[in-house]
Design a protein around this nucleic acid. Structure first.
Lengths: 191, 191
DNA sequence: CCGGCGTTTCAGAAATTTCCGAAACGCATA
DNA sequence: TATGCGTTTCGGAAATTTCTGAAACGCCGG
């Protein structure tokens, strides 16, 4: 590996972090390199920079493309594939969340739904099902929320995030105005 | 493994999902079993149910305790340790998010801060740093928001989640009332 | 201090994942 | 249809992670 110190530090770190996520060290490093690169890189650039085997890089890139985390680019009169990450970091975050949800949440949601269809055959199973039902409801609430905010324009999203918990104040304030003594969810004019 | 079908399905699934997260299959299965169990279980109960070796279960439990995902319980006149998950699912989610942040986000934040202190030695490093700075800002925004909402009472949190993107409407509505023609963040009486 | 009971540690075995190099493949262009 | 260039596949090697059984440990009541 032959990289400027700042870049090397970041690349190595991302490799380690990668293994705490679903992706492996190599893939993490490739991603980090692409993320920092000012220009799209081709597979051989990455081989030269990171010293992995050609096929390993190829596999890694394939995985990153499957995750929608890197995109293919082409240069005129050059048959090679070049790879790059989106300039817009918000786009990256959106993709990341979307893909992790797809891999880590959705399968569980499906399984819970299926399992809750079955008739419990004992008290033990009855209790287990009740627990699963709780989990199912909670996940639905969370993914429902996500599905909502996901659609917001980035500008709006940032606005909301910046506001943080103070949004709560706005709601209380609205409450007092709209329906004194009642809770927001009850009489929501925006619903 | 000798479990009622509904429970077995869930346990196996959680094992698989576990490996997509940082934790391994065994640990995932142990957690799932504890989550569904109506009563706290001791290590030998888990050995009997899942068929792992005693030491493997011990290590798994240790890891789950380190994650704050399971708690120790004791019965009178019984020296054994019993393990259980919190009844309150929201508590579980809070712990999960907190711990994942600690493991997956905070180290990166630290590294970014350090790296951004160094003087870039080339244009390449300068560009890389700019990119890292972007990432740093974005993560700070997200964690700042999280730090805010984390403190909300569960009831308030649920209210907010249920509202979803409609909270946006409330903000616009507030805008019009408070400062027609201007954006919420500009003139926020709740700030 | 001893014996019983339960937990933890540890070194090696087993399983899984990662990684490499060689060969196969695909696709433009001549 | 041959050639050149780049990508992908694949079997096995290497590395890492997971798992086990045996032994060590720690604590309490006798």
């Amino acid at each position: 590996m032959n990289l400027p110190p700042l870049i090397q530090t970041f690349v190595l770190h991302f490799g380690e972090m990668g293994s705490r996520w679903g992706i492996n060290r190599t893939v993490g490093q490739i991603y980090a390199l692409l993320f920092l690169a000012p220009e799209p890189l081709c597979a051989d650039d990455i081989v030269a920079r990171l010293g992995f085997s050609r096929s390993n890089v190829s596999m890694g890139l394939k995985e990153l493309v499957a995750w929608n985390l890197v995109q293919l680019r082409h240069k005129p009169d050059d048959r090679r594939d070049f790879y790059t990450t989106p300039d817009d970091l918000w786009q990256i975050v959106r993709t990341l969340v979307e893909e992790r949800k797809k891999r880590e949440i959705d399968p569980t949601l499906t399984l819970l739904r299926e399992t809750l269809m079955h008739e419990p055959a004992s008290d033990e199973e009855r209790h287990a099902q009740a627990r699963m039902r709780e989990m199912h409801e909670l996940i639905e609430l969370l993914t429902g929320w996500y599905d909502d905010v996901r659609r917001l324009e980035t500008e709006r999203l940032v606005q909301l995030l910046t506001l943080g918990a103070r949004v709560q104040k706005v709601l209380e304030w609205k409450d007092r105005l709209v329906a004194p003594g009642r809770r927001a969810a009850d009489s929501d004019p925006t619903a």
